[in-house]
Write a protein that binds this DNA or RNA. Structure first.
Length: 308
DNA sequence: AACCGCAACAACCGCAAAGGG
DNA sequence: TCCCTTTGCGGTTGTTGCGGT
């Protein structure tokens, strides 16, 4: 673990939100050199951040295969039940949610699920998980969750969960069966969550070709319009901008979500709408993480064990 | 229009474990 | 075995936008 070659002079590290340039530098470096000694990354990548910050940024935001947008019903079920079973072991819970990070799970729990479970939890039943979840909630649990809870999914639960997602999304991104217990606001969120825009920075051409990790081309995480304002220049041609800020990403955003991207969306909506259309993928217009799992065969979507 | 509270998310902080010298 | 450094994890804080008053 010790990495004495990484010794470096003490310096003032930048803090706060990451700029597009910093993202680009980090992404460039990791894709070029792979993951190694995080403490050495800032210097080598030309970043005034500490290694810890770089690692966090990569894991939570830049890593390929990350799923953005609201949690689906199945994901909620998994979180609720695994939280009841494991406690606040966010990294372990996140392992059951492909494309989700522990930080994301934790945030989602703290900002939304915890309150909901506490509300519903007052009507506890005999179900083991009902310490925290209501009967109606539990009856909505997917087979996926049951598999995980009973241990049947050990090792394979991730794939099963993925499959369930796939089934619910459908080719057009349409919603499947009704979700009875969610309130209006969150039902809206669930509907949006059915559509997965792929990672912020994966070029549509690369996604369509599904060539494997080694063929990544660097693309702008930020919208073309942002790039053109002097920050990052997209390197890919046909797909200008990114899905996150384009029509497909916007389609899955709750009004309160992703204020940064949302902000960009506000600023650049007209510019990226056309670009987003150009980047649409056949069959619904969304990149699907599930397919990306194949594309990124070399990446794991679980927490932090990404290795090249 | 201004202010305030809330929600959502990104990022920081501190601690513990792991591993090399 | 101890010390030091890196890494991983969970708790917490900071930032931002939105909606209500």
């Amino acid at each position: 673990m010790g990495c004495r070659s990484c010794d470096k002079p003490k310096m003032n590290y930048r803090k706060g939100l990451w700029s597009p340039e910093e993202d680009q530098r980090l992404r460039d470096y990791i894709l070029k050199h792979g993951l190694g000694c995080w403490s050495a990354v800032p210097a080598k990548a030309g970043l005034q951040r500490n290694g810890k910050s770089c690692r966090l940024r990569w894991i939570n935001y830049l890593r390929p295969g990350l799923k953005r947008g609201m949690f689906s019903q199945e994901e909620e079920d998994v979180v609720i039940n695994l939280q009841a079973k494991l406690g606040n072991k966010w990294s372990q819970i996140a392992m059951h949610l492909p494309g989700r990070t522990d930080n994301e799970v934790k945030n989602y729990w703290n900002s939304y699920l915890k309150k909901r479970v506490m509300q519903l939890g007052s009507n506890s039943s005999s179900n083991p998980a009902s310490k925290n979840a209501s009967p109606e909630l539990l009856t909505s649990m997917s087979a996926t969750t049951e598999l995980i809870m009973t241990g049947g999914g050990e090792g394979g639960s991730t794939a099963t969960s993925t499959h369930d997602h796939d089934a619910n999304i459908g080719s057009s991104g349409a919603i499947s069966a009704a979700e009875p217990f969610v309130d209006q606001q969150h039902q809206h969120q669930h509907q949006q969550a059915k559509n997965y825009a792929f990672a912020d920075w994966m070029p549509a051409t690369a996604a369509a070709a599904a060539p494997g990790p080694e063929s990544y081309s660097m693309s702008a995480h930020w919208p073309a319009s942002t790039a053109s304002s002097g920050n990052v220049t997209p390197s890919h041609g046909a797909f200008v901008g990114d899905q996150m800020s384009g029509s497909s990403y916007a389609a899955l955003q709750h009004p309160h979500q992703h204020h940064q991207q949302q902000q960009e969306h506000h600023h650049h909506q007209s510019a990226v709408t056309a670009a987003g259309a150009a980047g649409m993928v056949a069959g619904g217009g969304y990149f699907d993480l599930l397919n990306m799992g194949d594309i990124y065969g070399g990446f794991t979507t679980t927490n932090d064990d990404l290795l090249f």
